[in-house]
Computed example of a mutant assay.
Amino acid sequence: MPRQGGLREAPGPVIAVVGPTGTGKSDLAVELALALDGEVVNTDSMQFYRGMDIGTAKLTVEERRGVPHHLLDILDVRDEASVSAFQSAARAAIEDIHSRGRWAILAGGSGLYVRAATDVLEFPGTDPAVRARLEAEAERDGLGPLARRLSDIDPESAARLKDARRIIRALEVHEVTGRPFSAYMPRRQYVQPTLQIGLDMDRSVLHGRLAERVDRMVGAGLLEEVRRLEAEGLREGRTASRALGYAQFLTVLDGDAAVEEAAEATIVATRQFARRQVTWFRADPRVRWLDALRPDLLHAALAILGGQVPEAPSVS
Rank of each mutant, 00 (worst) to 15 (best):
V176H: 00
P313I: 08
I105T: 12
G125W: 02
E137W: 14
Y49V: 04
S88W: 14
D44E: 14
A57Y: 01
P68T: 13
A136H: 08
A10R: 05
R133C: 01
G144E: 07
A81K: 15
A265L: 09
I304C: 04
R228A: 15
R238W: 07
V176I: 15
A10W: 04
A301D: 02
E212N: 14
F273S: 15
P68L: 10
G24A: 11
M46D: 06
V61C: 03
V205H: 05
E135N: 04
A107Q: 02
G221Q: 05
D76H: 14
P193V: 11
G24I: 12
L195M: 11
R216G: 15
A104C: 12
G101P: 08
R203N: 08
R166Y: 00
V218G: 02
I105A: 13
V205D: 09
G111R: 06
A132K: 14
V40M: 02
P295A: 13
L150P: 00
A283P: 04
W280H: 10
L297M: 13
Q87V: 05
R288Y: 01
A292T: 07
V173F: 00
R271I: 05
G22P: 03
W289Q: 11
A147H: 14
A147C: 09
L229F: 06
R228D: 12
T251L: 05
A265R: 09
R242S: 14
G178I: 10
V67W: 02
L199S: 01
V120C: 10
K25C: 12
A104W: 03
M46Q: 04
R209Y: 13
P180G: 02
R160L: 05
S82Y: 04
R213W: 15
F181G: 00
P11H: 08
S314Q: 11
F86P: 04
G142A: 04
V259R: 14
P295I: 13
G111C: 09
D202R: 14
V214T: 11
A35V: 08
D202E: 13
V191Q: 14
E232T: 13
V205K: 09
A243E: 07
P193A: 05
V83C: 02
G198L: 02
G198F: 11
A263R: 12
R188T: 13
P124S: 08
A89P: 09
R115D: 07
R288W: 01
L146S: 08
A240D: 08
R209C: 06
V218N: 10
L171F: 00
R115S: 00
H98N: 15
T21A: 15
W289Y: 07
A269R: 11
G306Y: 15
G208Y: 04
P20W: 06
M217L: 09
V30L: 08
I167H: 04
L250T: 09
Y184N: 00
E225M: 04
L199A: 03
E311G: 09
R238T: 04
A262S: 03
V83D: 01
L28V: 07
P186K: 10
P2R: 01
K25Q: 11
V18Q: 01
V287E: 00
A57L: 08
L199K: 10
P295T: 13
D200G: 11
D76C: 11
G245K: 07
D254V: 06
R166K: 12
R216N: 12
D254L: 06
A147V: 06
H69E: 11
D163C: 02
G245W: 04
E80K: 14
T266E: 02
H70C: 11
V173K: 07
R282T: 06
T23Q: 08
F123E: 06
S157I: 00
V114W: 01
R149F: 01
I74D: 00
